[in-house]
Computed example of a mutant assay.
Amino acid sequence: MPIDMKRIIFVITVLTAMVSCGPTTTIEKSWRDPDVTVNTASVHKFVVAALLRNEAVRRSTEDQMAALYPGKAVPSYSVLGSKELTDPEDVYKQRFQQQGYDGVVILRLVNVDKEQRYVPGTYPAYYGSWWGYYRYAWPTFYDPGYYTTDKTYYVEVNVYSLTRNRLIWSGITSTINPSSRDQLFGDVIKTVSKKMKQQGFVE
């Protein structure tokens, strides 16, 4: 039975595309307070804040962050509102203490790098004999290469303890060519959470 090379090439192309569509978020660097381990069972509640200009994206991201710790994580938009904070730090510190908050997690987009790269084109596959090549390659035209721009998004996540009044975890992530802002920040949240657990920072 003759091998249908065109079908094989098509399947390989599809599989490659499926693999390449997975999450691309990685931790570039991170730091943790070696004296702190967070036991989520003993945490009362904490604020999760996404410092993003687009209010819809901000709320969506904070909701995703809060969903990882239901009943404990509270979106900042429900506590601090949508306006810039202008009161002194002591005002918010006192409010958080009175309401029983243990900490604050802050996420923000710090930079977007753009890099142009060349994507080579493809030629018709060779099939051994001139007739096989001619018959299969006749309807298959050369696909020229092109230039595309890769975008790398760098996101910073900081965790502050309100009881200790200091930073206890910090990390920078990078994500290449996310399909949307929801995917970008969703991948960041999952990657950071996984890293914290691997480090033993969160139990």
Rank of each mutant, 00 (worst) to 15 (best):
Y118Q: 07
I106T: 15
K114N: 06
G132Q: 11
W130K: 00
V119D: 00
Y126C: 07
V91R: 11
D113I: 06
G103H: 03
Q98D: 14
V91M: 09
Y133I: 05
Q116G: 00
Y123M: 11
V112G: 13
Y92K: 08
Q98I: 07
V105K: 04
Q94A: 15
V110H: 05
R135P: 00
Y118M: 03
Y142Q: 07
G103S: 12
I106R: 14
G100A: 08
L109Y: 12
V112Y: 15
T122P: 01
Q94P: 02
Y101W: 06
D102G: 05
A125Y: 10
K114R: 15
D90N: 13
Y126I: 10
R135N: 04
D102W: 03
Y126E: 08
Q99W: 04
P124Y: 12
D102P: 03
F141P: 00
G121M: 02
G100E: 06
Q99T: 05
L107P: 01
E89P: 11
V105A: 11
W131C: 04
G132Y: 10
Y101Q: 07
W138P: 00
P139W: 01
G100I: 07
R108I: 13
T140W: 01
V91E: 14
Q94L: 12
W131I: 12
Y133A: 01
Q98K: 13
Q99D: 09
G128A: 10
I106H: 11
L107T: 08
F96T: 11
R117V: 08
Y92A: 07
S129N: 04
S129T: 13
Q97S: 10
G100N: 08
R117P: 00
Y136M: 06
K93L: 14
F141A: 00
P139H: 03
G100Y: 08
E115N: 08
Y118G: 02
W130L: 04
A137L: 03
G100S: 09
Q116F: 01
F141L: 01
I106D: 08
Q99E: 12
W131Q: 13
Y136I: 02
L107H: 04
A125E: 09
P139T: 02
R108C: 11
Y134N: 03
V105D: 05
V105Y: 06
R108L: 14
W138R: 14
L109S: 12
R135Q: 08
D113R: 12
W131N: 07
V104S: 03
D113K: 13
T122Y: 02
N111L: 07
V110F: 06
G121A: 04
P139C: 00
D102T: 06
P120W: 00
P139K: 02
Y123E: 10
Y142C: 01
R135W: 08
V119W: 00
A137E: 05
W130M: 05
F96K: 09
K93N: 10
E89D: 15
D113P: 03
P120S: 06
V119K: 02
Y134G: 03
T140E: 02
P120V: 00
R108H: 15
L107Q: 11
K93E: 12
W131P: 01
G100H: 11
